[in-house]
């Protein structure tokens, strides 16, 4: 590195400014560095995909290194004929769709009034909404509230207590402030538009993109959530996919009934390991398909929230 820090001003006569040798070396190092990062991030993902479509025996004996070995879809066949897994997937779908819809509605109901400068008590209300980011009563008092509301072991335990994310509220507020000028409110009011009318007729149509992406962000969160289900749902029929995955991937608990047709112990073990790869793929594909859309918003959201202040 010390060589690189030397001022390397090497201009060739006649030509305009060219890359100096030091810069070329730097560029080379830089590309190498990023290529290594690319490989490090990509490798586990490719390995997982390859292992999920290889023969279980090839996976467990370490023959799969990068590409699939002895192509086989037995892992996917098993996982899609596993009723617990399918039920978890349906539950996750419910939590994701219903939960995200509720969240988007609640977030807008809070964000729109808080952007109105003519709302008496706006400052106080804003602080009221933001303070829980800094301090909370803790897990147990939260659990007691949910329990006393009678939500434990219902689907609503997942949908309602997590409805509003303060972080998403902040992003929604700063988006609305940036994209809807005060003059628009004033003009609409002079034309006799009510506050709710303004929200429905002007704010929501202008914020279509934000609504879509807010929905996606909440959806990713709901699809990936497992801890609330661990705490609030003891009924296995209500558990979302992530909790089923936890049993398969981390606790090594698989219903051996699904392997009844496999006699040899070693084959069962191999299949159990391979199931992990196929279930990882099945659970992650929906989110990774959404991600290119969400990612752009995150970039915008982060930029609005942090740089422009």
């Amino acid at each position: 590195m010390s060589i690189l820090r030397l001022p390397s001003i090497q201009r060739k006569s006649g030509s305009s400014i060219q890359e100096s040798r030091g810069d070329k070396v730097f560029s080379w190092i830089n590309y190498t560095f990023l290529t290594i990062i690319l490989i490090v991030v990509l490798y586990p993902l490719i390995y997982t995909l390859s292992a999920s479509i290889s023969a279980p025996s090839a996976v467990i004996s370490g023959k799969v290194i990068l590409f699939p070995v002895d192509f086989s879809l037995v892992g996917y066949e098993k996982i899609f004929s596993y009723p617990t897994f399918l039920n978890g997937m349906l539950n996750s779908l419910f939590y994701t769709i219903v939960g995200s819809s509720v969240s988007v509605v609640v977030t807008f109901m809070a964000a729109y009034p808080l952007t109105r400068r003519d709302l008496p008590g706006r400052r106080f209300l804003t602080v009221l909404f933001f303070f829980p980011m800094l301090f909370s009563g803790g897990l147990i008092p939260f659990y007691l509230v949910v329990r006393d509301l009678g939500l434990v072991n219902t689907r609503w335990a997942i949908v309602i207590p997590t409805a509003l994310s303060v972080w998403n509220l902040i992003i929604t507020i700063s988006f609305l402030r940036a994209s809807i000028p005060d003059e628009l409110y004033e003009a609409a009011q002079i034309d006799g538009c009510s506050d709710i009318g303004f929200l429905l007729k002007i704010v929501l149509p202008l914020a279509k993109a934000l609504i879509a992406v807010l929905f996606l962000v909440y959806a990713v969160g709901q699809w990936n959530q497992w801890f609330f289900s661990l705490v609030f749902q003891t009924n296995p029929d209500l558990l979302p996919l992530q909790n089923i995955l936890r049993n398969i991937l981390i606790l090594n608990k698989v219903d051996l009934g699904m392997m009844a047709d496999i006699k040899r112990m070693a084959d069962q073990q191999a299949l159990q390991e391979q199931l992990k790869f196929s279930s990882i793929v099945v659970a992650s594909v929906p989110v990774l398909l959404l991600y290119p859309f969400v990612q752009r918003y995150f970039v915008q959201g982060l930029t609005i929230g942090a740089i422009k202040g």
Binding site: I37, L38, V41, L42, L45, V220, W223, N224, Q225, W226, Q242, N243, L245, R246, I248, L249, I250, K276, I280, A283, S284, V287, L288, L290, Y291, V294, Q295
Partner: peptide, 15 residues
């Protein structure tokens, strides 16, 4: 590629 793993769930990540 480097953004993608951010969206993987914690359970899958640990798996």
């Amino acid at each position: 590629v480097t953004y993608a793993p951010h969206f993987i769930s914690t359970v899958v990540m640990v798996g």
